[in-house]
Amino acid sequence: MSTLTLRAAPPERIDFLNINPLALRGLSQGEAERLEVGTTRTGVRLGDCFAVALDGSDSLTIEGGHERLDRVGASLSAGTIRVTGDVGQRLGAGMAGGSLTVTGHAGPYAASGATGGTITVEGDAGDYAGGAVYAAKAGLDGATLIIRGTAGAHLGDRMRRGTIVAGRAGAFAGSRMIAGTLAALAVGDHPGLGMRRGTLVIGAHGRMAQTFVETGAHDLVFLRLLATALRGLSPEHAALLGRPLRRYSGDLATIAKGEIWVAA
């Protein structure tokens, strides 16, 4: 297991796009320490901020995170990254496979555009977790995002595929959703605003937009299958599906093929 240990708080935002087990495997200690990870004109090299210990394996541990570490695990295709601490924006953005765990909090746009693999945030996540960045076609796009704590506003904004599981979430959870599944124990106002397709499973919610219509209580086989699928990620969320559920259909402002399941 290779390890990067944070020595001092970074003086500027750090870009970890090119720091992953696969990229570090072929490098010597010195080469890895000289990798440019800074974002300003002054710049920072990996060795300036981190003590580097490489062993050529496909797992990487970052000991001591910081909210200025951007794009940790972005475009990861295989292997494991574990961060002990916080990370900045775009955690696992565009990730295609592998596994990524953060023990602290994540900044905005976690798992944006991620097509595969599993991203776990044990603390809280910022706004637009699993959401789309500026001008991107989609947010989460096939990966699995698990947020044990609280997610900010616009969780799963414009997500297209994949699964998001969050403890609590802010306003506009699942807004403009294209497709996919989002489960949360509680969300803020306007869940699913502008959603086209997709499934939200929520325990409690704030204001429900008038463009969602209640379509009654149902007992569908699909829900039992979904519960089985969620149980492996979070038993608490799977249990939501065991309670009586009310189904809302919407958003009527769009093609209205989305659904929100609210546990009683």
Binding site: L193, A209, T211, A253
Partner: peptide
């Protein structure tokens, strides 16, 4: 009362004959 984005969405739903 539900805020402007929701209100515009309601108009859009009427314009699409969904409401």
């Amino acid at each position: 009362e539900g805020g402007l984005p929701e209100a515009v969405g309601v108009l859009r739903a009427y314009a699409r004959d969904h409401l």
